[in-house]
Amino acid sequence: MFDAVIRNLPFLMGGFRVTLQLTLFALAGGILLGAIVGLARISRNRWIYQPVTIYVNFLRNMPLILVIFWFYFVMPVFIGRPLNPFLSAVISFIIFEATYFGEIFRAGYQSISRDLINAAYSTGLTYTQTARYVLIPIAFRRMLPSLITQSIVTFQDTSLAFVIGLQELVRRTSIVDNLEVRSIELFSFVALVFFVFCFIGSKISHHFEEKGRQTGIL
């Protein structure tokens, strides 16, 4: 029954590799930028707080698919040549996901007591050092379950990059479907792949939640 899948497996898996690569870059960039966005969102300096808050609120009220589209078609106007779809998708995902990761980090930072930060300052650490060695690692650990959940969402969202022609898993499946006309099997297969990966992810998230509760280190 799944012969259409098996026949095209190398082609489909090539698409899945693109999905994974896009996820990886989006997460690395999104989490890193998110950690900084979160810091800006608790900044007392209005020149930092205001612009970043506008950026976060704007993108969080925007459908991701529109951001992907917009970036792909607007950027060439500025740089004078068309963007490679993969690069365009990676950048769109990073700036979009960073707003979500940023809000998770902000909640993490706000759970850290003012005096813990004062303690770091009183040993002579600078703002950047305090952020790097104290704030970000603590927020990261405390918010790990939420970060994993958002990472799963990001993984699922990568399929939206098909709108700019990126040949990730869903796009390639639809290409195969156009030739084979076996929609049910093909898309069931894709659904299964996504489900398995997301399910494993949610189990990992659950594990860290439990572990965090038990050790009480944070």
Binding site: S113, D115, L116, N118, A119, A120, Y121, S122, T123, G124, Y133, V134, P137, I138, R141, I217, L218
Partner: peptide, 16 residues
């Protein structure tokens, strides 16, 4: 602040 150490009521050690 390098030459002024400070100790807090709630210790404030880095938990991680």
């Amino acid at each position: 602040r390098r030459k002024i150490g400070m100790v807090f009521q709630r210790f404030e050690l880095y938990p991680h």
